[in-house]
Design a protein around this nucleic acid. Structure first.
Lengths: 341, 341
DNA sequence: TTGAAAGCGCTAACAG
DNA sequence: CTGTTAGCGCTTTCAA
């Protein structure tokens, strides 16, 4: 006997398909006897409602899509995990799209709401996952979407407001720079992520703010553009070491970068923290296991993921979202990669 | 103007919905003029076919689900990424389910093929994602499924054969143990993963084989059950250190474990590799950046992911899969965490 | 080559 | 409380 549908089940029980549907989805709207009879039969026959049928009818998929540049990034995968867990608790499945930063790929995934494969989008990119043509079009309607960690580029925002869940990157950047400053460091090199990304810009702004508060001049020559990867951390550090003047501290805007940096420093027999202090950003799970254990800014990965989902589901449900931007608390985590000069 | 459906588009063009559908999906079956007219109009109006409607009709979703115990595991997320990329190239989307090892959760995700949310499953667990009741039932039909890296427990296999993509864990375990043996190590402690998991059992078997080849006796007291996590690596190493006799080498069955191990060793002022040699398994991206850089067994993450998808799609398409088990080559990567005794 | 019409499996409006 | 009925948007016969 193959898979059974609602019709067959109804026929077996000698009732209408409507009753089967109700007994299963709105049990309070049928008699106790009916409910029990249907539920037992469903279990016994192994009846599984075809979600496509239901989705088509209800125009809801109970899927959300998360668009992410790199799922193998340790920080991202932490957030993803939390997203999946929360969504699953709320009866939603998570589709995910790893875009590798490719614009066409983002757009392809962004389309999945319009093709009714998903009800909403969580986006880790600073680009909206829609083509310019779409965005400019009059009949473009923004699907439910929330941004995780990355603010959208302002030009795309024009007249639109997309919910955002993030930490205060400016404050965090400022805090960790201040930590270094308080330790007496004056020449603090910075390894950024993609220089165009808002998170990088914001953290950099925080760094400048801290400098100013300490009465120091900002020196652009100390800013090195990198990427949020181990490799970039390693190669950019090499660049820094080739400069005539060596900084006493390196501020990395992501832990993977910092770990790559630590590696290269060790390769070059520069010891951390006695010769150079290094800090990261994110507090990925590896940070405390490195040697030296990394001083960094912890982001509330679980909360970020959870809030993204909750806000998205509110938008999907048509509830107006009171707070368009949710700023979650970060925390400076001081370990062994920094010391007073 | 809201989103447009096939009917509206057909009406606008003054043709039937059938022609629209054909022009878009089977362009070779309509006249050139019709094809062009429809495709232009589709682009111009921003028509996006509702996939639910299509899925319902064709009984295909173009989704695959990947069931995974922990997406934030660095090795897993690498494979996932490759799965996603391959699937996407082939026109499939990836739904994913992070089960945290919870049986009910596995089963829930396993159900998604029967509820027509996905066409097939890639599974990272050694359990089939179906309830015992289902498995025992006569009218249970195994959906398209392939296992990644983990062989199924034999009792579940009874009479079923599920494709598997993996490395040869026995050979890999044997090789890395031999590496240690060749270096003169005789007391080699092992930190395993979940002792019930086939990959652990196989790697352990490899270890025993290598011992035997070296004419050594297997000592069960040297085997410590851990988990595939940093924390377990750290805490289990503490256990090992509390034993009266200290081994000269520790073989960890996963890199995260090994990294946790390295950490605890350093905490206890035991230097690697001069006091103790340590090896891992997987060659996650962090392995070479640790200090000391980790000697390990590299798994072909990209190939594993790609093959899983390709085989799964073959099964979905009803092609008989010639090779039920695909063994991919691993590679011993010798770095700085091991040295001759 | 095209159109008309049926129907995938389900839910919801309406009656009874 | 339950049944009848009408689609959701698409693809695919079948006929023209």
């Amino acid at each position: 006997m193959a898979d059974i549908g609602i019709k067959q089940l109804a026929k077996i029980l000698g009732i209408s398909t409507a009753s089967v549907s109700r007994a299963l989805n709105n049990p309070e709207r049928v008699s106790d006897a009916m409910r029990k009879r249907v539920q037992d039969a469903a279990k016994q026959t192994g009846y599984r409602p075809n979600k496509m049928g239901a989705s088509l009818r209800t125009a809801k998929t109970k899927n959300i899509i998360v668009i992410i540049p790199d799922i193998s990034d340790t920080f991202n995968s932490g957030v993803i995990r939390s997203i999946e867990r929360t969504a699953s608790d709320r009866g939603y499945s998570v589709l995910f799209g790893d875009t590798q930063g490719i614009r066409e790929s983002e757009i392809g995934y962004g389309d999945m709401v319009r093709t009714r494969q998903a009800d909403g989008i969580i986006c880790f990119s600073h680009n909206l996952p829609f083509s310019d043509a779409d965005l400019d079009s009059d009949n473009f309607k923004m699907p439910p979407i929330v941004n995780s960690c990355e603010q959208l580029q302002s030009l795309q925002l024009a007249g639109r407001s997309i919910p955002l869940v993030t930490i205060d990157n400016v404050a965090a950047g400022r805090e960790i720079a201040k930590h270094l400053l308080d330790l007496g460091h004056r020449e603090i090199a910075v390894i950024t992520g993609d220089i165009d990304s808002p998170s990088t810009q914001q953290r950099l702004l925080g760094y400048k703010l801290a400098l100013k508060e300490a009465g120091l001049e900002f020196n652009p020559a100390l800013v090195f553009e990198g990427e949020y990867t181990l490799e970039a951390g390693s190669s950019t550090t090499l660049e820094i070491l080739s400069e005539p003047q060596r900084p006493s501290a390196i501020l990395c805007m992501c832990d993977e970068t910092a770990l790559g940096c630590l590696y290269t420093l060790k390769e070059n027999n520069i010891s951390v923290p006695s010769d150079i202090s290094v800090v990261g950003f994110d507090d990925i799970k590896f940070a405390r296991y490195f040697s030296p254990a990394l001083t960094t800014v912890a982001q509330p990965v679980d909360d970020i993921g959870r809030q993204c989902v909750e806000i998205l589901l509110d938008v999907i449900d048509g509830k107006s979202v009171a707070q368009k931007t949710v700023i979650l608390p970060h925390k400076l985590v001081i370990r062994d990669s920094t010391q007073a000069i």
